[in-house]
Design a protein around this nucleic acid. Structure first.
Lengths: 346, 346
DNA sequence: CTTGCAACCGCAAACGATTGCAGTCCATGC
DNA sequence: GCATGGACTGCAATCGTTTGCGGTTGCAAG
């Protein structure tokens, strides 16, 4: 009575109750027309009557499919990862899968360990924002027949289906927007150059400058982790320059929190004294006053496509020929950028 | 070759390779001293050599334990839920469990469905922020031997181990802080009274007023969902009063985004013109300028305790006698509250 | 050389489902 | 009346583990 008794009604029980064999019970409940309509109906009735629920473990053991998908992200604070988690969970559940949440803190060790346990769990597939250090393991997964979809980040060492934001174009658009407003000295606070996103966003910025006939001034870019502290430090460094920038392009919403504080501390008014543009949207940037203009990398669309690709392969389609998909980024103009009418004093 | 071949090395294989029976292989690898040291060592060697990884499904089927824990939250945007997910994932993984993420959008239907599939999956336990409409199902789970820990929210219909923030005290402290600063008309933007948190935060506010010898003015409280829109609307309504409040207590960080915008739109300066205090911390409130004072409900501590309680029961301890645990909230003073020196003009 | 006692080890039965194969039944056509 | 075939159904093996139970083995004591 007080012992454990995990839902004890099994397929045997319903078979017995309906006076058929376990196999017919299985087939009847499977739905395809493997049995006569009447037995099927009877079995369904008995099953619901008894409150039968199939044991996913047993089924998985036999069918070699756990209907579990691993979702591997760096954290849940970054808005892109967060909506990835939300969207993936929602859509995969709708498709009959459960998601196992794994957080790596961008640490290859944890990522490796996570991948291993996911294999033990016989996960049917993986959606992962890779650190980039475990390509071999991911490739091994694929070889074992477990589809892997990379998203938001890429593992450069290995060919995997990957869906990314159009970072180079997005950064290009953003920078060009500032240029069109007349800005010439545009500070950039961006991710570390070891990361794809850091490099790509930087390259978009450079290309925009170049197309505008402007030289590239490395001292205007400040690279670091995606964290408010970094934004604050970058902001301070850039503002300490004698010819301080008239606009700041911040390549991440967390870092933007830091630059906003940095500006406020110095009494610099956005957008009157300085324009600010952020790569990646987030609710707090949208509700902020003045509302911060952003180039939205479309995390929901990224997530949806990644899930789609994975589901397609789970249904048996081979990996697409095109291994890399890009989701367009788009500029959302709010109130933090304004035309540079006059050169600032001095 | 191109067929699916989920990691094919099984216990049989390592047993065969080591020339022992499957059972000894199992026992040797289990670790407890069920075999001689030497066979154990040999088996371990062979196992790693062959790259053996136990099949969790098969093991789970036999041991009636999936080592899967369901984590059921309303969303991932709210900071409390988010850190719950992060902390739970991290600590449960450390204890050898995986987390199945389920998002209910605070919808009882989805919650019910989610609970059902979690049962099918033979989840070993549940950490849940209940909607409050599925108490019966949760109780059924418990009866089947699956421990359930509620956190952040409570299901009032049923007795379950529950860890909550000390909302009444927290709201009391917050309100008293504002009172001590001299504020007398304090607007409250709070959750709907159908929710425990809405009621409790309101009650703390009322008690503080009462202890200060002040009457309760229902027109100073604005109740609604935890959403920026609601904060904005509440803020506008309160500011339209002839005797507008000199301080606002906003019972949720998302709603606070809305009131901050509302204030900014009217050119009201925090804290000079109006003091703002928020219940629940979040990075954007902390980095904001002026930084918003908050009463921190300690989501990490909530999560840790919930996980602890669950783990304890998973290890076999019976449910504690005390079914409800409270985590103290604490005031974090930043820059958004200031003493009311003079009565405002008029 | 027996006996007793541990310490190890293997057999085989589970766990709860799916599925290939073979059997049963009935209706049909000749 | 009998062969033919189709539609259902049941048997039994299987997925990869764990574990109760009985059997071997080795060694010390008698």
């Amino acid at each position: 009575m007080l012992a454990v008794m995990h839902n004890p009604v099994t397929l045997r029980d319903v078979a017995r109750a309906a006076k058929v064999s376990v196999s017919t019970a299985s087939r009847a409940l499977a739905g395809a027309g493997l049995t006569s309509k009447v037995t099927a109906a009877r079995l369904r009735a008995v099953a619901t009557e008894l409150g039968y629920r199939p044991n996913t473990l047993a089924r998985g053991l036999k069918t070699r499919s756990s209907r579990l998908i691993g979702l591997v992200v760096h954290n849940l604070e970054n808005a892109s990862f967060r909506v990835l988690a939300e969207v993936a969970q929602q859509r995969l559940r709708a498709a009959g899968y459960q998601v196992i949440l794994c957080i790596t803190a961008d640490d290859p060790e944890q990522e490796a360990e996570t991948i291993a346990t996911l294999m033990d769990q016989r996960a049917d597939g993986l959606i992962i924002c890779p650190t980039g250090q475990n390509g071999a393991r991911l490739a091994a997964l694929e070889r074992n027949g477990t589809p892997v979809a990379c998203v938001i980040r890429r593992d450069e060492a290995v060919e995997l289906e990957t869906v990314l934001a159009a970072d180079p174009e997005g950064a290009f658009e953003g920078t060009r927007h500032l240029l069109e407003l007349g800005h010439r000295r545009i500070g950039l606070i961006v991710g570390r150059p070891e990361t794809t996103s850091g490099r790509e966003r930087l390259s978009g910025y450079r290309r925009a400058l170049q197309e505008a006939g402007l030289g590239f001034d490395a001292s205007l870019v400040h690279a670091g982790r995606y964290h408010p502290e970094v934004g604050l430090a970058g902001c301070q460094a850039l503002l300490d320059r004698p010819d301080r920038p008239t606009a700041l392009f911040v390549a991440n919403h967390e870092a933007t929190l830091g630059v906003l504080r940095g500006l406020a501390e110095r009494g610099i008014i956005i957008p009157d004294d300085l324009s600010v543009l952020c790569y990646e949207d987030s609710p707090s940037l949208a509700w902020q006053r003045p509302a911060i203009s952003v180039v939205d990398n479309g995390p929901a669309a990224l997530a949806e496509l990644a899930v789609d690709r994975l589901l397609r392969r789970l249904r048996g389609s081979p990996a697409g020929a095109a291994r890399e998909y890009r989701i367009g980024a788009r500029l959302i103009q709010r109130q933090s950028c304004r035309p540079l009418s006059l050169p600032v004093e001095a």
